[in-house]
Amino acid sequence: MAITLTAAAAKHVNRNLTRRGKGVGVRLGVKTTGCSGLAYQLEYADEVAAEDVVFEDHGVKVLIDPKSLPYLDGTELDFVREGLNEGFKFINPREKDRCGCGESFRV
């Protein structure tokens, strides 16, 4: 099982952790929502919870709760700029379908 980050994603996370002045990494998860069933969650984490599964890539800790891990296993987190928009992009090999608005996915 593994979660990875691209160099661009790691750079963006590290820059924001420095700006915040605190934090141990980024927390990824999934929640039930939307027309396809699941949506990605991403937030900066200030501490590691006892139940967290911890991965580290490019010097960034990625924290995942055990319930989300089966849906995220093998995912690569990227940070992309497309025109005037920028943001994180989840590249998930388990993803079978995505809703038209791009907010939710199905495995």
Rank of each mutant, 00 (worst) to 15 (best):
M1F: 11
M1H: 13
A2T: 15
I3F: 07
I3D: 08
I3W: 02
T6M: 14
T6E: 12
T6N: 13
A7R: 15
A7F: 12
A7K: 15
A10K: 09
A10G: 11
K11P: 05
K11S: 15
V13L: 11
V13Q: 08
N14I: 00
R15E: 14
N16Q: 13
N16P: 03
N16A: 04
T18S: 12
R19T: 15
G21H: 11
K22Q: 13
G23S: 09
G23F: 03
V24M: 02
G25N: 02
L28E: 05
G29D: 05
K31W: 10
K31P: 06
T33Y: 14
G34R: 07
G37W: 00
G37M: 00
G37Y: 00
G37I: 01
L38K: 02
L38H: 05
Q41M: 14
Q41T: 15
L42E: 09
Y44G: 00
Y44H: 04
A45S: 03
D46N: 13
E47A: 14
E47K: 14
V48S: 02
V48I: 14
A50S: 13
A50R: 11
E51W: 01
V53L: 05
V53G: 00
V54L: 01
F55T: 06
H58G: 11
H58C: 09
V62T: 08
I64D: 02
I64M: 03
P66T: 07
P66S: 04
S68E: 02
Y71K: 09
G74H: 06
G74F: 03
G74Q: 06
F79K: 07
F79R: 08
G83E: 01
G83N: 05
L84E: 15
N85F: 14
E86A: 12
K89H: 08
F90T: 10
I91Q: 13
N92K: 11
P93K: 10
P93V: 09
P93W: 08
K96N: 13
R98H: 07
G100N: 04
G100D: 05
C101H: 06
C101D: 12
S104P: 10
F105Q: 02
F105I: 09
V107E: 02
